[in-house]
Structure formats: structure tokens, C-alpha cells
Design a protein around this nucleic acid. Structure first.
Lengths: 212, 212
DNA sequence: AGATAATTTGACCGATTGGTAAACATTACA
DNA sequence: TGTAATGTTTACCAATCGGTCAAATTATCT
């Protein structure tokens, strides 16, 4: 007999572990391209290589799938910002934040697009997280940046917009990948692209933040 | 009797002008939030205040609606880049490009999101335009930037990534508006936000591009 | 005003949507 | 090994999807 869903949270079997993993992997593929509304359970089922009712055995609704995926992805996504450290010197700290964010855009573009899709739609599923945990984390890091400004290590500027500009420039290479490829042409779309972007952005931010 | 659709291109009536306008306005509302796949003709019809078959009288398919909308919006969207001029001095030219792009993000956020949605989905409807006209335009402007570098007016850097970074930082305020609002808090989300962003970005790019 | 062309609508179509029910198959464990 | 819990599938449902059609309405022009 089919289990009451509650049992799953009590004890997880090997199969549950594997299948949920499989499903979320497929869901990431689909949701990151078409967004929540534009994605269908059938698409996810096909990518996952499972039947639709089988998906719905593990996640009761499309919403539940999406929520589980977002929850899973969120923590890692904020890791680079968390690593942003007040102790190090501003230049190397900003340099490595840019690097890390750029690496994530390169290595986890689907995750980046999943968020971008969510933002475009008005963040219906993560608004609380934005206003709560994210805001707090950013406030904290903005305070760090302000101490750098006060001690004259970087130029006086708005720390929030600084953070936004690092987010946007780096994530751009994941979210607008097609455009970047199209404009650079296929010849410049190899490994060199990443290094070129990193070099430019480090130059821009380090130069732009150097105290007068 | 219903007209053969061809007649519409021969002579446009007042009503056609108005209704097509109404429909595209509503389509922009809907497509910019949910993307092509995630949007329905019924949604657009409701926003437009017309019946679904009435929409389909003016645009035979959902695709046709979307294509007409993109075509209409594209030209204006590239205007700031076209205005980018080799004659002016780099500093004021870059400054005003940032301004213009930021103004567009503020005044036409739906248009920005329409494109962002299209990019996230792999640009299925505009890929040719990206590889053709857009690439050519960017190549042209990249050449301008290179002359600035050669004459020592700005620091040596990759002109393509410079353009990408201006695009991404400015469009961020339209595409990720929810996130920006959430992080800044509602108190900082008034008119001041725009000026703060403009000030920061000009400082960043002018400072970051100043020759050593 | 009357004829004709243009516009609008309700009723409807087959395909796809998210999701369910129940029979069937497999696994884990005593 | 038996059996109960877990996992999978087929068949299905009502709602919604993009789109059609013919009838009804409105605008245009002589």
C-alpha cells in the first residue's frame, strides 16, 4: 500500500535518496530554462527518465518539486558572499569574491538561471528569504565594506550597489550566456572567455575602488 | 465576412492600430513576467480586456504576438548603444551611456525583462538578431573603444567585457528589481535609488577605466 | 439608408496540463 | 521465506491550453 507521506520524513530509504536526487537534477534542467509556469511535470519526468506519477510519488506537486529544488540550491548559492571576510585586505577579498562568483556562473549556470527566472517573475517563492536572511547577510557585508571605506582602504561608495554590481556582472555570464556567445562569436567562446572576463572584472573593480 | 489576413497589411484601419497597440501592451505585461512558454493567450486577453478570439483575429498565433512584440521593442532597446559615439571623449561618453541604460531600466523594466526571459530560454526567437545585427553593432563599438585605448585615453582592457559589464549592471535594476528592493528595504526604494545607482556605476566605470 | 467590409463573440475542438486511483511489482526485514 | 512496507505503472480525470468556426455585431462608404 502507498505510504502516508509523513513516513518519508521519518526514515529515508536508499531509493528515496537516489530518486529524489534524480528528480531534482532533472527539475533543475527544466525549471532553469522555462521558469516555474513554463515548465511541465511531463518534461521533468522525461528528462529524469521516470513516469509522471512516479515523480508525484516523491513530490506531491509541481510546487513541492520547485520548493525542494530552491531550498537545496540556495545554501550553496550564498556561500561566496558568506566567505567575504572583513579580515583580509579589500583588494584580495574583492578579487576572490569576483573569482568565486564567476566560477559559480561557469560551473553552475543552471542554478544561476533558476534564480534569475524566479527574480523575473517577482520572486513569488523566495521573497521572504530575500527580505530576511539575504538582506541580513548583505547588511553585514555592507558594514564590512563601510569599515574599509572609513579606514581609507577603498574609495567612498555605496556598498550595496557595489555588491549588486558584482552580482550582476558575474551572473551575466551564466544568465545571458547565449548573448555573450553570439556577440563574441564561437571562436572566443572557449576556455579563454572565462579568464578574459575574470581579468576584466578584477581590473574594473580594483581600479574603480582604489582610493584617490 | 472575415477578411483574408493579407488585407491588413495593405490598409490599416484606425481600429486595427488601436487594438494591436492594446494587445501588444498587454502581451508585454504578461510575457515579461512569465516568458513565452509560461504565458497564455487567456492571460493576455484578460489584461487587454478583450476576448481570446478577438486577440487571435489580430495575431493569428501566440508566436505571432510574441514576434511582433519583440520586433517592436528591439529597435528602441539598442538605441543607447547606437548613440555611443567615437567623437566625444571617453569619460562623458561612457557616463552618458550608463545614464541612458539606467534610465531605460527604470522607465522600461518590462522590456528589459522580456529580453532577459528570452535569453534565459536560450534566445529561441532572437538568436539570429544576436549573431547578426547585435554582434555587428557591438563589434563597431568595440572598435571605438579600442581607439580610445590605443590613444591612451582609457586603460587597456577587453572592450567586449566592458560592454557586457555595463549591460549587466544597468539591466540588473530592471530584471532583479525585487531583489534590489528586498535588500535595500522599502525605505531606500524611492527616487533616491536611481541616483545612488547612477552615482556608484559612474564612479566605478570612470575610476576603473582611468589610464594608470 | 442600405450594402459591404471589418470586428467581436460564444460555443466548441483536440491536445496538454497538474494530479489521482488502484492494480501491480519490488524491496526490506522478521 | 513470507509478508508488510515501499515503489512503479496504467488508466484516467477535470481543467486549461492554443486555436477554429460561424453567427452576430459594428463600422465604413456610396
Amino acid at each position: 500500500m502507498a505510504i502516508p507521506r509523513a513516513a518519508k520524513t521519518l526514515r529515508r530509504t536508499r531509493i528515496q535518496e537516489e530518486k529524489e536526487e534524480q528528480i531534482l537534477e532533472a527539475a533543475l534542467d527544466v525549471f532553469s530554462v522555462s521558469g516555474f509556469r513554463g515548465s511541465t511535470i511531463d518534461q521533468i519526468a522525461e528528462v529524469a527518465g521516470m513516469s509522471k506519477p512516479n515523480l508525484l510519488y516523491y513530490f506531491r506537486t509541481k510546487e513541492a518539486m520547485h520548493r525542494a529544488l530552491i531550498d537545496r540550491v540556495l545554501f550553496n548559492w550564498l556561500e561566496p558572499l558568506r566567505a567575504f571576510d572583513a579580515e583580509g585586505n579589500p583588494e584580495s577579498e574583492i578579487r576572490s569574491y569576483i573569482r568565486r562568483k564567476l566560477e559559480m556562473a561557469r560551473d553552475f549556470p543552471r542554478e544561476s538561471r533558476l534564480f534569475a527566472n524566479e527574480m523575473l517573475q517577482g520572486a513569488p517563492h523566495v521573497l521572504d528569504m530575500l527580505k530576511g536572511p539575504l538582506k541580513e547577510l548583505v547588511d553585514e557585508k555592507a558594514a564590512v565594506i563601510r569599515t574599509w571605506i572609513k579606514s581609507g582602504k577603498i574609495v567612498r561608495c555605496d556598498p550595496y550597489h557595489l555588491i549588486f554590481s558584482i552580482w550582476s556582472t558575474t551572473q551575466h555570464y551564466a544568465d545571458f550566456d547565449v548573448q555573450v556567445r553570439a556577440v563574441l562569436g564561437e571562436e572566443h567562446s572557449g576556455d579563454g572567455r572565462f579568464e578574459d572576463a575574470a581579468r576584466f572584472l578584477e581590473q574594473l573593480f580594483i581600479g574603480g575602488l582604489r582610493p584617490d
